[in-house]
Structures are given as structure tokens and as C-alpha cells.
Amino acid sequence: MTAYPVDAVAAEESAGGPRLECRDLAGGRGSTVVFRDLDLDVQAGSVLALLGPNGAGKSTLLLTIAGLLPYKAGRVAVEGEALRTGNPVAASRAGVVLVPDNRSLFTTLSVEENLEVARRRGGPAPRSLLDVFPALERRWGLPAGALSGGEQQMLAMARALIQQPKVLLVDEMSMGLAPLVVETLFDTVRQIARDHGAAVVLVEQHVQLALGVADEAAVLNRGHVVLRGAAADLARDSTRLERAYLGELAPTP
């Protein structure tokens, strides 16, 4: 069984410039503009926690970066190359992989088949993902719909990993899951960034857990970044965080 390959990219740090860059990005659903003038940078191998109350635009932002929603203004770039608006296939080819909040698994297909669908030519085989998620072994041939919530989330992450993402976007991974399972998943996210050099954006409701695994954090409220900084700093300053959530902080320039 071939072990899951440690990405060679991790070794060469990105020579200048962030892995993922959003500049003056504006987007939304239909005719509603949910976020505007948004700037975001994520370096390869680092984890950015994207926090904030719902309705702030976090999920919409991830969908926009992944090309599933078109952006109305601004620019999204991966390693300096701009992505075309509203083109999920191009984004995927550029190495952007999204794990949506509803996971969007193929519930009638087995665990192995779910991974097989996402397998890339020359990429790792489905079985190699068992190195990262050994718990999936027991469920290998079962339809994804029969898995528990935690197992489904693991499968969704494995399906993202098998594509060897350059940019990994994770939307609300902990939703509805028990704390122990969530811990394991967060550890894996850390591992992915560190060992495989992916730039990770983590949208999360469980603030402290997210801050524990992230390098940087940003709080989004009503479509604007209202707080940004090193995760460790924000973790210590819970009052500022609460104020950011309750909408008491003005957008940071």
C-alpha cells in the first residue's frame, strides 16, 4: 500500500507572494452583494481561521473562491495566477478544493467510490488516504449515506486531500459533531498544512478550537473584515472577539 505522499511543495516555501490572494473582492448570491472590497492573503503551509456570525458572508466567500459563485468585482489569484469568475472547473485545476458545509458526498456511492471519483491522474490511490484517516477502513465498502456524521466529515476531508490541493477551503467542519471527533479533524487540518504545504482557510463556529489550530485569524462581520491578527493573540483577547461578533467593531481598513 503506497503511503500518502508528502508533498514536495512543502519543502520549497512559496518564493514571494501568498499561495491564495483575494484583492478588493466583491461577491454575493444572485443580485445581493454579501461582501465588498475584501482582501485576504494566505501563505502556503499556513492555516487562516475565518470567523464571524452567520450572514457575515463566510460561506459565500468560500464558494466564490472555489468558483461555484461568480464574483462581481476584484480578483482571486492562486500563486499569482488569477482565476476566472464563476468557473469551478478552472479553480479545481488550479488546485483549489472546497469541502462544503453540507459535505456534498455521493451518498449512494461507497466510501471507496467517493474517493475514486476525486482521484487525479498520477495522484494518490484511494487506499493511501487510510494513512491519514484509518477509521474509514471499517466502512470502506459501505454507501456514504450510512456513515455517521464524523465519518462523513472524514470522508469529505479525504476526498479533498486525494486531489492534493494547493488551497484547501473548509466550511464549518465541526458542525453537529462531537468534541472528540472535532479534535481529530482539526489535528488533521494542521497536519495537511504542515506536511503538504496547502494554504488552508478554515471557516468555523467553534472559535477557540479554530484558534488553537490556526496561524492567523480574521473575523468577518456583515461582509467586512473587522478583526485580523495572529491566532495566538486573538485567543488571549476574548473581549475583542466578542465585540467583533456582536458587530461593535468597525471594519478594518
Binding site: G67, V89, S92, R93, P100, S104, L105, T108, Q163
Partner: peptide, 10 residues
């Protein structure tokens, strides 16, 4: 089954 699932699987 799901177009979104297809897109996020590349």
C-alpha cells in the same frame, strides 16, 4: 446525485 459534489471532486 449532486452537481456541487462533482465540482468539489474536480
Amino acid at each position: 446525485e449532486t452537481q456541487t459534489g462533482a465540482y468539489v471532486s474536480g
